[in-house]
Design a protein around this nucleic acid. Sequence first.
DNA 1: TAAAAAAATACGAACGTTCATTTATTTCTT
DNA 2: AAGAAATAAATGAACGTTCGTATTTTTTTA
Lengths: 226, 226
Amino acid sequence: MTYNEFKKIVKISKEEISGQILERNRDSIKVKKEEKVIENLIRIIDATLKICSKKSFQAMSIRDLSAESGLSGGALYSYFSSKEELLVLIQTQGREIANRVLVDQVVKSSDPVEKLRIAIKSHIYLSEAMRNWFYFTYIEARNLPKNEQKLAIESELQTEKLFIDIINGGIEEKVFRDENVVLVASVIKAMLQDWYLKSWKYRNRKVSVDDYADFVIHVAESILLI
Amino acid sequence: MTYNEFKKIVKISKEEISGQILERNRDSIKVKKEEKVIENLIRIIDATLKICSKKSFQAMSIRDLSAESGLSGGALYSYFSSKEELLVLIQTQGREIANRVLVDQVVKSSDPVEKLRIAIKSHIYLSEAMRNWFYFTYIEARNLPKNEQKLAIESELQTEKLFIDIINGGIEEKVFRDENVVLVASVIKAMLQDWYLKSWKYRNRKVSVDDYADFVIHVAESILLI
DNA sequence: TAAAAAAATACGAACGTTCATTTATTTCTT
DNA sequence: AAGAAATAAATGAACGTTCGTATTTTTTTA
C-alpha cells in the first residue's frame, strides 16, 4: 500500500465528518437546516485548524475565527455554545475518526508482521491526510477541561494498546523477538507522532510520506524480527 | 554512566542559571542588587515552569504568577519588561544549557559507538533533570515571536546535526551500516523527546530513566550496528 | 552604635484594551 | 409575510501593564 492507494481506500469526506458532529451535538447547535449546519461546520473547522496551525487555540480570538470562516461572531455561537465546546468538539471528532480508520485497517490481516506494517502505514498515512487535525489534537489536548483530558489520554493509550497487542501476537507466534513490548510500542508511537509534529522538517528535507512510513517499518522490524 | 552518576558530574545550579540570565538581560532588569535578582529570578522561573506544566503560558496570568512566586505583579515587572520577554528569556536559557551540556559530554569520546551512547544518555538524563524546562521549551516554542521561533528551530536542527555527525562518523569507520542518516537521526530525536513529552506515561508504568535510555540505545544500535 | 536620611525594592489599586458572549436588529428564504 | 439565520453593536469580565505609595534595606550622620 502507498499513500495514494490509501487515500482512495479511506474516504474521509468533510461532509461526513460534519454530519457526525451534528449528530453528536444537536443540542448546542441552534441552526435547524442540516445543509446549512454541515456547510458552516466545515467552514468553522477548516478555519480553526488553519488558524491553529499558526497560533494556539487560546490565542485565536472569535474575531480571528469570524474573519477566517466568513461568519460573524454572533453566527458562530449558533454552531457551538462556547469556545471551549468548539475545542472539545474538534478533538472528540478527530480522535473518533483516527481510531475508527486505524482499527478498520488492522483487522484486514491476521499475520502479525503484516498487521504491524498495516498499523504503521495507516497511522502515518492518516496523519498525513489529516495533518491539521492530528496536530491540533496533540498540541491542544492539554487545554481541554479535566474530564476531556482524561478521554484524550485514554485514546492515546488505546492506540498504543493496538500496537502492544500486535507485537505480543508476533512474539507468541515466534516471528518477533521477546523484547520489552511496552517500550517497543512506545517508541513506535513516538516515531509515528514525529511525522505530524515535525512535518515542516520532513517537507523541507523532501522526505515523502512513503519514505518515512517505510523507514519506520524498517526500524520496527530491526528491533522485532528474528 | 547511570542517571545518578550523570547528576553528580553535571552540576546545573539554579543560582548559576539565574546568574547567566542576569548577564544576558541586564538592560531589562531594573533591580540592582545581584543577590536579589538571582533569588527572585529563581522564584519566578520555578513558578512559571510549575504553572506551565499544568496550563499554557498564555493561560497563565500575571496574577497567577504573582501568587505562585510570592512577588507582586508590579515587582515582577522589575525582572522582565513584558510577559513575552519572560517567555523568550526562559526559552533562550533552556536551549543554551541543553546545548552546552550535550556538546560537553559528547566530545569526551572519539569512538562513534561510544559517542552515540553518550549523546543519547546525556540527552535523556538532562531532559530528566530539567524536565519542566524541556517540556516548556518544546511546548511553548510556537508561541514565541517570529524571530525567536527561528532560533528555536535552528537549535533543534543543531541538536539533530550532532547526531547526524556521529552517525556519519560511524559509517565512515565502517562500524555503522550505511543507513539513511538523516532519518536515523530524526527517529532517535523523536524517541528522546518522547521521554519528557510523555513523562506521565513512563512514570505510571514504572519505566526508569535508565531503562528508557538503555532501550533507546538498543534501538539505535539495532538499526546501525553491523 | 543608634538614630536619621536616602535609596532600593515591593506593593496593589487603577487604566486601557481585548476578549468571549449576549442582545437587538436586519437580511435572507420559502 | 413569517420564520430562520446572520449581523453588528453592546456588555462585562479578565488581562497585561503602569504608577503612586509603602516598606525594607543600606548608607550616612552624630
